[in-house]
């Protein structure tokens, strides 16, 4: 059928319905990012550890995970994890909600990519400052919290922002499991309207994701400004 005009009214009609499910998209993204970064940090600790075997093993796993497309990873986690859990621990994941598996899959994805990022940040640290912290009598945890984390995070913020944006976008793959997130809902609403305004429906989804990415970018800008104290100016050291 020939398109007659741009269906702004349709967009306005489905907008509230999409906003209604927006929290689910945001929740999935936030949990995936938080969990993924924490796991990534753990992996980094393993990678820089003195135990060569552990470091090698984690390196290998990272390479394998990063090679798997996100949508495939989501399927593997959704269909594979409950089986594995049943066989290994006798625990039934049947009651778990679908979004949980999306979060887990994306967290795995992010942990692999962010661990590489964290490692590069760790390597970029000035050992002299860590020695100064040691000389002051700081414990390992204090060194991490006061020196390594604030300085290392600043270095990787721009790249981390990109990774997080990727995860936000990847939450749209949740629809492949039939989850009613923004993308899934738009698909259903479009079908219900006999696919008369498919373009408008997805344009609206695009706009919503644009809004999310704008907010994400803003958060990282603020973080960068706050953590960048003293870090940007070039050393004038005599």
């Amino acid at each position: 059928m020939e398109r007659e005009s741009f269906h702004l009214d349709f967009m306005l009609e489905i907008l509230p319905k999409l906003i209604e499910v927006l929290p689910l998209t945001i929740m999935m993204a936030v949990f995936a990012i938080v969990i993924g970064c924490l796991w990534g940090l753990l992996l980094t600790f393993c990678k820089v550890s003195k135990h060569r075997k552990i470091a090698g093993l984690i390196d290998g796993i990272t390479v394998i995970v990063r090679a798997v497309p996100e949508v495939v990873l989501i399927y593997i986690v959704y269909f594979g994890l409950p089986e594995l859990s049943k066989d290994l621990f006798g625990y039934d994941m049947g009651t778990w909600e679908k979004p949980v598996f999306v979060v887990l899959a994306l967290a795995i994805e992010l942990s692999a990519s962010s661990s590489e990022l964290f490692r590069s940040a760790y390597n970029s640290l000035d050992p002299g400052q860590l020695e100064a912290a040691h000389a002051l009598g700081m414990t390992g945890t204090q060194k991490f919290m006061r020196i390594i984390y604030p300085q290392g995070l600043f270095v990787i913020l721009p790249n981390l922002s990109g990774l997080c944006l990727g995860i936000i976008q990847a939450t749209s793959l949740a629809y492949t499991l039939g989850i009613m997130d923004v993308m899934g809902k738009a698909k259903v609403l479009d079908s219900n309207a006999f696919s008369m305004s498919t373009f408008e429906a997805y344009l609206l989804v695009a706009l919503i994701y644009w809004g999310l990415s704008f907010i994400e970018g803003w958060i990282f800008k603020v973080l960068e400004a706050r953590m960048g104290r003293g870090m940007r100016t070039v050393a004038s050291g005599a």
């Binding site: 000035d126 002299g128 400052q129 100064a132 604030p150 953590m227 104290r229 870090m231």
Partner: peptide
């Protein structure tokens, strides 16, 4: 300890 290259924390005043 005082180091040859000062080793001040560069993100702190």
């Amino acid at each position: 300890m005082v180091f040859q290259s000062y080793n001040l924390f560069r993100n702190k005043t």
